[in-house]
Amino acid sequence: MLFINQDEVSTLLSMKSCMKVMESTLIDLAQGKATQVLRSVLAIDDENVLGQMPGYLKKNGVLGTKVITVFPNNHKHGLPSHQGVVLLFNAKNGELMAVVDGSEITAIRTAAVSALATDKLSRVNSKILCLLGTGTQAKTHLEAMLTVRPIELVKIWSRNIRNANQFKEEMQQKFKVSIILCDTAEEAALDADIICTVTSSTEPILKATWVKAGAHVNAVGACKPNDRELDSELVRTSKLYVDSIESTQNESGDYLIPLKEGVIEQNHIIGEIGRLLIYKNTSRTSETDITIFKSLGLAIEDIAAANFIYEEIVRKFND
């Protein structure tokens, strides 16, 4: 059995490699070659949760579960909001093969899936990126968006000015891209071709009136039924795609709250990203459509990433 730490994960799981793994895995899920069940969530003191996410990758011969805590206010204490491990098992005999750091996997695979969705749904000439939030997910999403689109300008906003300034300095040096810090979320979102909401907010931080025609939104931060980052009007006027319809209908406040308000109907979800990935062409039907990819994160994504890392270590050892 291997214990694989955070540094090993970040070294072995590049963004481009992760995108390839996620594409294959999400297509397998869409075609019934991978299975998972809804995550089980234990509420801790109202706003915090302990979650468990099991899944089975038939083609790879592995199964596993991700055990994770989500503590949204951890950033105030210099800690990540998501912490956990992925347990990887051999599907033939049940042997525990590896315990893998889950925090780094979460950061990389979430952004990799957003990149796949962005490549299918955003306009190919998208040049202005907006990041609402400047934490761990903002860093990996910046790398992911630069991978799939010719981004020339990045507009950022955060409630924490110190974090925002640190993010700007670090990311400008790493990626050599122009980054400007905005005073408000509205200022950051205006004129953006791609918007990534990667915050711990429980209330809308992005409004329909701020999003221009033809923009694409990756909604990543909110993962509980009563939490959301998007206002109802934005969801109503956009074409909504998700990572899992079942998960969205049970866990996503960005979908459930507008549904409860009567702003949208249950069939408002157009489809899952895995289905889009089966077809090689872009899925955008109009240059003026606003598209949303609602990401909740799936067990099979974590297990596939953990298995890739495990196989890389075994391969290097055998070489």
Rank of each mutant, 00 (worst) to 15 (best):
A91E: 11
I68E: 02
A98T: 02
N307F: 06
Q31W: 03
L79T: 11
V263F: 06
S295A: 15
L42T: 13
L142G: 05
G64I: 00
S200T: 15
N73W: 09
I292H: 01
E8F: 05
K16W: 08
K174A: 15
Y255G: 01
G51A: 13
F317R: 15
G253P: 11
G221L: 07
A299T: 05
T136H: 10
E170T: 15
G214L: 06
P54K: 04
V41Y: 02
V70K: 00
N163A: 14
K76E: 15
D7G: 09
L38M: 12
F175I: 13
L121Q: 02
L256P: 08
I257K: 00
E95H: 09
L206S: 05
A188D: 10
H268A: 14
V21D: 00
Q173R: 15
V220S: 01
P204D: 10
N93M: 11
L88Q: 00
T237Y: 07
L42K: 09
N250E: 12
P54Y: 09
D191F: 08
L13C: 12
E8H: 08
T288L: 15
I309T: 05
M53W: 03
I303H: 00
M97P: 02
G274E: 00
Y255K: 07
L121F: 11
I128W: 03
N250S: 14
L50C: 05
L13Q: 06
N74A: 13
E187Y: 07
I156C: 06
H216T: 06
N226W: 11
V70C: 12
G135S: 10
